[in-house]
C-alpha cells in the first residue's frame, strides 16, 4: 500500500511523538533516588535522537526526494555526529 503525502507526514509525526515518549520513560528515573551515569541510557538517548533527526530530515524536510548529494550530505553529517557523540561519551 502506498501512503499519500499527508499520510506519510502523519505517520512521521506519530512516530516522532511516540519515540519522544519512550525517551521520557528512559529519563523518568529523575527524582527516584540518586541519579548515576548510565551508559545504556546515554547510548539509548543518542540512538533515539539520531533516529528522530533522520525522520525529520527525510520526511518533514522531504530529503527523501532530494538529489543524491543532499541525501548523502545529511546522512554523512548525522553519521559523523553520532560517531563523535559516542566517542565523546565512551572513549
Amino acid at each position: 500500500m502506498t501512503l499519500s503525502a499527508h499520510q506519510r507526514l502523519v505517520a512521521a509525526w506519530f512516530t516522532l511523538s511516540a519515540i519522544t515518549l519512550v525517551a521520557w520513560s528512559i529519563g523518568a528515573s529523575h527524582g527516584r533516588g540518586p541519579i548515576e551515569p548510565d551508559a545504556a541510557v546515554a547510548f539509548s538517548a543518542i540512538a533515539i535522537t539520531l533516529i528522530k533527526v533522520r525522520v525529520i530530515i527525510r520526511e518533514f524536510m522531504d530529503v527523501r526526494h532530494a538529489p543524491a548529494r543532499l541525501r548523502w550530505i545529511t546522512d554523512g553529517w548525522l553519521a559523523s555526529f553520532g560517531l563523535a557523540m559516542l566517542l565523546a561519551y565512551f572513549a
Binding site: 525517551a23 521520557w24 529519563g27 548515576e36 541510557v41 546515554a42 535522537t49
Partner: peptide
C-alpha cells in the same frame, strides 16, 4: 525542530 530534539536528549535525558 531537530536541533531542539538533540538538545532535549542531552540536557534532559542523557546520563
Amino acid at each position: 525542530d531537530f536541533l531542539w530534539v538533540i538538545i532535549f536528549a542531552l540536557l534532559y535525558v542523557m546520563r
